[in-house]
Design a protein around this nucleic acid. Structure first.
Lengths: 112, 112
DNA sequence: CCAACTATACAATAATTCTTGAAATATAAA
DNA sequence: TTTATATTTCAAGAATTATTGTATAGTTGG
Protein backbone atom coordinates (compact mmCIF):
# COMPACT_ATOMS: atom_id res chain seq x y z
CA UNK A 1 0.00 0.00 0.00
CA UNK A 2 1.69 3.18 -1.17
CA UNK A 3 0.49 6.72 -0.73
CA UNK A 4 -0.94 6.94 -4.22
CA UNK A 5 -3.14 3.88 -3.83
CA UNK A 6 -4.21 5.01 -0.37
CA UNK A 7 -5.26 8.38 -1.78
CA UNK A 8 -7.23 6.72 -4.56
CA UNK A 9 -8.96 4.48 -2.04
CA UNK A 10 -9.85 7.38 0.22
CA UNK A 11 -11.25 9.27 -2.76
CA UNK A 12 -13.21 6.17 -3.53
CA UNK A 13 -14.71 6.12 -0.05
CA UNK A 14 -15.17 9.87 0.24
CA UNK A 15 -18.63 9.93 -1.26
CA UNK A 16 -21.88 8.96 0.36
CA UNK A 17 -22.96 7.10 -2.74
CA UNK A 18 -19.76 5.13 -3.09
CA UNK A 19 -19.67 4.35 0.61
CA UNK A 20 -23.25 3.09 0.32
CA UNK A 21 -22.28 0.93 -2.63
CA UNK A 22 -19.37 -0.54 -0.78
CA UNK A 23 -21.42 -1.24 2.32
CA UNK A 24 -24.09 -2.86 0.20
CA UNK A 25 -21.55 -5.10 -1.49
CA UNK A 26 -19.98 -6.06 1.81
CA UNK A 27 -23.41 -7.01 3.05
CA UNK A 28 -23.80 -9.27 0.02
CA UNK A 29 -20.36 -10.82 0.11
CA UNK A 30 -19.21 -13.10 -1.31
CA UNK A 31 -22.01 -13.34 -3.89
CA UNK A 32 -21.94 -9.73 -4.91
CA UNK A 33 -24.61 -7.93 -6.87
CA UNK A 34 -25.13 -7.05 -10.51
CA UNK A 35 -25.21 -3.42 -11.58
CA UNK A 36 -28.97 -3.25 -11.89
CA UNK A 37 -29.50 -4.58 -8.38
CA UNK A 38 -27.16 -1.96 -7.03
CA UNK A 39 -28.81 0.97 -8.77
CA UNK A 40 -32.24 -0.30 -7.75
CA UNK A 41 -31.27 -0.89 -4.14
CA UNK A 42 -29.84 2.60 -3.81
CA UNK A 43 -32.39 4.31 -6.06
CA UNK A 44 -29.73 5.63 -8.39
CA UNK A 45 -30.03 6.32 -12.11
CA UNK A 46 -28.09 3.52 -13.83
CA UNK A 47 -25.65 5.99 -15.38
CA UNK A 48 -24.77 7.46 -12.05
CA UNK A 49 -24.31 4.05 -10.48
CA UNK A 50 -22.13 3.06 -13.38
CA UNK A 51 -20.05 6.19 -12.96
CA UNK A 52 -19.30 5.40 -9.34
CA UNK A 53 -18.86 1.68 -9.91
CA UNK A 54 -16.26 2.44 -12.55
CA UNK A 55 -14.35 4.71 -10.18
CA UNK A 56 -14.46 2.11 -7.43
CA UNK A 57 -13.35 -0.62 -9.80
CA UNK A 58 -10.43 1.51 -10.98
CA UNK A 59 -9.48 2.03 -7.35
CA UNK A 60 -9.63 -1.77 -6.87
CA UNK A 61 -12.05 -1.26 -4.03
CA UNK A 62 -14.46 -3.56 -5.83
CA UNK A 63 -14.10 -6.22 -8.50
CA UNK A 64 -16.27 -6.91 -11.48
CA UNK A 65 -16.91 -10.07 -13.46
CA UNK A 66 -19.08 -10.53 -16.49
CA UNK A 67 -22.05 -12.87 -16.34
CA UNK A 68 -23.66 -12.89 -19.70
CA UNK A 69 -25.15 -9.45 -20.08
CA UNK A 70 -24.80 -8.76 -16.38
CA UNK A 71 -21.86 -7.25 -14.60
CA UNK A 72 -21.42 -8.64 -11.12
CA UNK A 73 -19.65 -6.50 -8.55
CA UNK A 74 -18.03 -7.70 -5.36
CA UNK A 75 -16.34 -5.87 -2.50
CA UNK A 76 -12.58 -6.35 -2.44
CA UNK A 77 -12.10 -7.15 1.20
CA UNK A 78 -8.41 -7.83 0.75
CA UNK A 79 -7.62 -4.31 -0.38
CA UNK A 80 -9.76 -2.96 2.44
CA UNK A 81 -7.69 -4.96 4.90
CA UNK A 82 -4.56 -3.44 3.34
CA UNK A 83 -6.00 0.02 3.76
CA UNK A 84 -6.75 -0.64 7.40
CA UNK A 85 -3.18 -1.84 7.86
CA UNK A 86 -1.91 1.28 6.14
CA UNK A 87 -3.95 3.57 8.36
CA UNK A 88 -2.83 1.70 11.42
CA UNK A 89 0.79 2.01 10.36
CA UNK A 90 0.35 5.72 9.60
CA UNK A 91 -0.98 6.27 13.05
CA UNK A 92 2.08 4.96 14.79
CA UNK A 93 4.79 6.01 12.37
CA UNK A 94 7.76 6.87 14.49
CA UNK A 95 5.56 7.27 17.52
CA UNK A 96 4.20 3.94 18.70
CA UNK A 97 4.03 5.31 22.23
CA UNK A 98 1.40 7.85 21.30
CA UNK A 99 -0.76 5.56 19.26
CA UNK A 100 -3.23 3.30 21.03
CA UNK A 101 -2.41 -0.38 20.79
CA UNK A 102 -1.56 -0.43 17.12
CA UNK A 103 2.08 -1.29 17.60
CA UNK A 104 1.29 -4.81 16.55
CA UNK A 105 0.85 -3.61 12.95
CA UNK A 106 3.37 -5.48 10.88
CA UNK A 107 4.19 -2.66 8.49
CA UNK A 108 4.42 -0.06 11.20
CA UNK A 109 6.68 2.91 10.52
CA UNK A 110 7.15 2.49 6.80
CA UNK A 111 7.57 5.68 4.83
CA UNK A 112 5.52 6.22 1.68
CA UNK B 1 -18.58 6.89 14.08
CA UNK B 2 -21.51 7.43 11.75
CA UNK B 3 -21.53 7.42 7.99
CA UNK B 4 -21.45 11.19 7.73
CA UNK B 5 -18.34 11.56 9.85
CA UNK B 6 -16.67 8.68 8.05
CA UNK B 7 -17.35 10.37 4.71
CA UNK B 8 -15.92 13.65 5.96
CA UNK B 9 -12.84 11.88 7.23
CA UNK B 10 -12.30 10.06 3.94
CA UNK B 11 -12.67 13.34 2.08
CA UNK B 12 -10.13 14.74 4.44
CA UNK B 13 -7.67 11.97 3.62
CA UNK B 14 -8.45 11.88 -0.09
CA UNK B 15 -5.92 14.52 -1.05
CA UNK B 16 -2.19 14.11 -1.39
CA UNK B 17 -1.60 17.39 0.41
CA UNK B 18 -3.88 16.58 3.33
CA UNK B 19 -2.50 13.07 3.62
CA UNK B 20 1.00 14.57 3.71
CA UNK B 21 -0.07 17.00 6.41
CA UNK B 22 -1.55 14.23 8.49
CA UNK B 23 1.49 12.00 8.10
CA UNK B 24 3.73 14.91 9.04
CA UNK B 25 1.70 15.61 12.16
CA UNK B 26 1.69 11.95 13.16
CA UNK B 27 5.45 11.96 12.81
CA UNK B 28 5.58 14.92 15.18
CA UNK B 29 3.09 13.64 17.72
CA UNK B 30 2.39 14.55 20.40
CA UNK B 31 4.14 17.91 20.08
CA UNK B 32 2.51 18.89 16.83
CA UNK B 33 3.65 21.68 14.52
CA UNK B 34 2.64 25.29 14.03
CA UNK B 35 1.13 26.37 10.73
CA UNK B 36 4.31 27.95 9.42
CA UNK B 37 6.34 24.81 10.06
CA UNK B 38 3.80 22.76 8.13
CA UNK B 39 3.72 25.01 5.08
CA UNK B 40 7.50 25.22 5.07
CA UNK B 41 8.00 21.48 5.47
CA UNK B 42 5.65 20.71 2.58
CA UNK B 43 6.60 23.72 0.44
CA UNK B 44 3.05 25.02 0.35
CA UNK B 45 1.89 28.62 0.06
CA UNK B 46 0.61 29.55 3.54
CA UNK B 47 -2.88 30.22 2.23
CA UNK B 48 -3.12 26.82 0.67
CA UNK B 49 -1.84 25.11 3.79
CA UNK B 50 -4.35 27.09 5.82
CA UNK B 51 -7.13 26.01 3.47
CA UNK B 52 -6.37 22.34 3.97
CA UNK B 53 -5.67 22.68 7.68
CA UNK B 54 -9.06 24.27 8.13
CA UNK B 55 -10.76 21.41 6.30
CA UNK B 56 -8.92 18.83 8.34
CA UNK B 57 -9.72 20.65 11.57
CA UNK B 58 -13.39 20.77 10.65
CA UNK B 59 -13.25 17.05 10.01
CA UNK B 60 -11.68 16.62 13.47
CA UNK B 61 -8.81 14.77 11.86
CA UNK B 62 -6.46 17.26 13.49
CA UNK B 63 -6.74 19.61 16.44
CA UNK B 64 -5.54 23.14 16.79
CA UNK B 65 -4.54 25.18 19.83
CA UNK B 66 -3.45 28.76 19.96
CA UNK B 67 0.00 29.60 21.28
CA UNK B 68 0.32 33.34 21.24
CA UNK B 69 0.43 34.23 17.59
CA UNK B 70 1.06 30.66 16.55
CA UNK B 71 -1.50 27.99 15.80
CA UNK B 72 -0.29 24.56 16.78
CA UNK B 73 -1.77 21.56 14.99
CA UNK B 74 -1.76 17.99 16.21
CA UNK B 75 -2.96 14.76 14.66
CA UNK B 76 -6.11 13.41 16.29
CA UNK B 77 -5.10 9.81 16.76
CA UNK B 78 -8.28 8.98 18.63
CA UNK B 79 -10.53 9.79 15.71
CA UNK B 80 -8.20 7.88 13.42
CA UNK B 81 -8.58 4.86 15.67
CA UNK B 82 -12.35 5.26 15.44
CA UNK B 83 -12.12 5.38 11.68
CA UNK B 84 -10.07 2.20 11.64
CA UNK B 85 -12.67 0.55 13.84
CA UNK B 86 -15.42 1.74 11.52
CA UNK B 87 -13.67 0.36 8.46
CA UNK B 88 -13.06 -2.91 10.21
CA UNK B 89 -16.70 -3.14 11.18
CA UNK B 90 -17.81 -2.24 7.65
CA UNK B 91 -15.73 -5.04 6.28
CA UNK B 92 -17.44 -7.71 8.27
CA UNK B 93 -20.97 -6.38 8.47
CA UNK B 94 -23.17 -9.39 8.34
CA UNK B 95 -20.40 -11.47 6.88
CA UNK B 96 -17.71 -12.16 9.44
CA UNK B 97 -16.87 -15.40 7.68
CA UNK B 98 -15.70 -13.62 4.57
CA UNK B 99 -13.66 -10.98 6.29
CA UNK B 100 -10.16 -11.83 7.50
CA UNK B 101 -9.76 -11.80 11.26
CA UNK B 102 -11.70 -8.64 11.90
CA UNK B 103 -14.49 -10.27 13.81
CA UNK B 104 -12.90 -9.07 17.02
CA UNK B 105 -14.04 -5.53 16.19
CA UNK B 106 -16.33 -4.49 18.99
CA UNK B 107 -18.75 -2.48 16.87
CA UNK B 108 -18.99 -5.09 14.16
CA UNK B 109 -22.20 -5.19 12.20
CA UNK B 110 -23.65 -1.84 13.20
CA UNK B 111 -25.74 -0.10 10.58
CA UNK B 112 -25.06 3.52 9.72
C1' DC C 1 2.25 52.90 20.74
C1' DC C 2 4.65 51.02 16.81
C1' DA C 3 6.87 47.77 13.81
C1' DA C 4 7.46 43.07 12.63
C1' DC C 5 5.48 38.68 12.37
C1' DT C 6 1.97 34.75 12.09
C1' DA C 7 -1.93 33.14 10.32
C1' DT C 8 -6.49 33.36 8.40
C1' DA C 9 -10.29 35.47 5.55
C1' DC C 10 -11.61 37.03 1.27
C1' DA C 11 -11.99 37.09 -3.69
C1' DA C 12 -11.16 35.52 -8.26
C1' DT C 13 -9.97 31.90 -11.15
C1' DA C 14 -8.79 27.23 -12.37
C1' DA C 15 -9.63 22.58 -12.10
C1' DT C 16 -12.07 18.68 -10.92
C1' DT C 17 -15.98 15.91 -9.87
C1' DC C 18 -20.96 14.88 -10.10
C1' DT C 19 -25.23 14.10 -12.29
C1' DT C 20 -28.25 12.99 -15.93
C1' DG C 21 -30.45 11.78 -20.51
C1' DA C 22 -29.53 10.04 -24.97
C1' DA C 23 -26.98 6.98 -27.74
C1' DA C 24 -24.16 2.91 -28.27
C1' DT C 25 -22.64 -1.85 -27.15
C1' DA C 26 -23.37 -6.41 -26.09
C1' DT C 27 -25.86 -10.40 -24.64
C1' DA C 28 -30.04 -13.17 -24.40
C1' DA C 29 -34.47 -14.65 -25.80
C1' DA C 30 -38.20 -15.29 -29.12
C1' DT D 1 -32.90 -12.51 -37.32
C1' DT D 2 -35.45 -9.52 -34.73
C1' DT D 3 -36.56 -7.75 -30.25
C1' DA D 4 -35.79 -6.97 -25.52
C1' DT D 5 -32.69 -6.35 -21.63
C1' DA D 6 -28.44 -4.84 -19.13
C1' DT D 7 -24.91 -1.85 -18.87
C1' DT D 8 -21.75 1.48 -20.34
C1' DT D 9 -20.05 5.51 -22.97
C1' DC D 10 -20.64 10.06 -24.35
C1' DA D 11 -21.75 14.83 -23.90
C1' DA D 12 -23.30 18.84 -21.46
C1' DG D 13 -24.10 21.46 -17.68
C1' DA D 14 -24.15 21.93 -12.56
C1' DA D 15 -21.78 21.82 -8.49
C1' DT D 16 -17.92 21.42 -5.76
C1' DT D 17 -13.10 21.78 -4.56
C1' DA D 18 -8.36 23.65 -5.12
C1' DT D 19 -5.05 27.30 -5.65
C1' DT D 20 -3.07 31.73 -5.05
C1' DG D 21 -2.35 36.84 -4.19
C1' DT D 22 -3.95 40.46 -1.44
C1' DA D 23 -5.92 42.25 2.54
C1' DT D 24 -7.11 41.81 7.37
C1' DA D 25 -6.84 40.43 12.29
C1' DG D 26 -4.33 39.33 16.13
C1' DT D 27 0.27 38.85 18.83
C1' DT D 28 4.77 39.94 20.37
C1' DG D 29 8.67 42.59 21.47
C1' DG D 30 10.91 47.06 21.35
Amino acid sequence: MDKQLATILFESLASGIRLDIFRLLVKHAPTGLVAGEISTALALPPTNASFHLKAMTYASLINVTQEGRYQRYRANLTVMQSLIDYLTAECCTGNPDYCFDATKASSCCDTD
